[in-house]
């Protein structure tokens, strides 16, 4: 019986190597969470830079804004699969290898951080300017405004932004897997597609869906808990 054709080819569970499935799942989660943490930090810093230098009168600030905006727009526009290939020499220099989960990190971070930075900038712009003015009128320093007004007041948008970014990162890790980064994408491609084993592809897909679902749920619940704008 051929295992590559027909609907039944999806259900040969005996052919699934669960140990490698688990380790691939672990790699996917590790790549996603590790890069997400760095994406959050870099994205917030970059978003803050974009926000603080918007409409500034100082020439230096305007130059900084322009540079940050160019960086964000360029790296947000490059298709991820091309970015990985483009960054191969840099990746080799940074992490010493171009294979394995670690090798995926630079391109994951560089592609997702600008995406998140734009969301952070938008979240800050959505804060009522009057609230910032009120803090200024009370004699708050810029640092106090950032930590006591901007970040807490935009927190629901920051969290829902990181949820969306996290979910696209899961997709990126699968793509990275195809060029040897490991994880579920790699497994689905090598053991599923190239070995003509549809069951593995299906199982890998389901596991990815579960991870996405868990991410989304955690994000939504967090937003609900921290958003005090609506009375429930």
């Amino acid at each position: 019986m051929s295992s590559t054709t027909g609907f039944s080819s999806y259900f040969h569970f005996s052919q699934v190597d669960w140990a490698s499935m688990w380790s691939a799942t672990g790699e996917t989660i590790w790549m996603t969470v590790f890069s997400l943490v760095l994406v959050a930090i870099i994205g917030i810093l970059l978003g803050l830079l974009l926000f603080e230098t918007t409409d500034s009168h100082s020439l230096w600030a305007r130059l900084l804004h322009w540079l940050a905006a160019v960086f964000v727009n360029v790296f947000r526009s490059i298709p991820f699969i091309i970015l990985i290939v483009l960054l191969l020499p840099i990746t080799k220099n940074l992490v010493g290898t171009i294979i394995g989960p670690k090798a995926a990190l630079p391109s994951l971070i560089i592609s997702a951080a600008p995406f998140y930075a734009r969301m952070v900038e938008l979240a800050f712009h959505e804060i009522d300017h009057g609230v910032i003015e009120a803090a200024e009128s009370m004699g708050a320093t810029n640092t106090q405004i950032i930590f006591k007004v901007l970040l807490p007041e935009s927190s629901p948008a920051l969290v829902s932004g990181i949820t969306v970014t996290g979910i696209s990162l899961i997709g990126y890790t699968a793509m990275a897997g195809v060029i040897g980064a490991g994880g579920l994408g790699n497994l689905a491609y090598l053991d599923g597609f190239q070995a003509s084993n549809n069951t593995i592809t299906l199982v890998a897909t389901i596991v990815i869906l579960i991870i996405v679902f868990i991410f989304q749920t955690i994000g939504d619940l967090t937003v609900r808990r921290i958003d005090k704008r609506i009375t429930r």
């Binding site: 009522d128 009057g130 609230v131 009120a134 004699g139 320093t141 807490p152 007041e153």
Partner: peptide, 22 residues
């Protein structure tokens, strides 16, 4: 100096400008 002087002045607004997260 300006911030310290501002701390000695209160201001209230039409739309209250409270921090909703607090």
């Amino acid at each position: 100096e300006l911030r310290e002087k501002r701390q000695k002045m209160g201001m209230i607004f039409q739309y209250f400008n409270l921090l909703w997260s607090r």
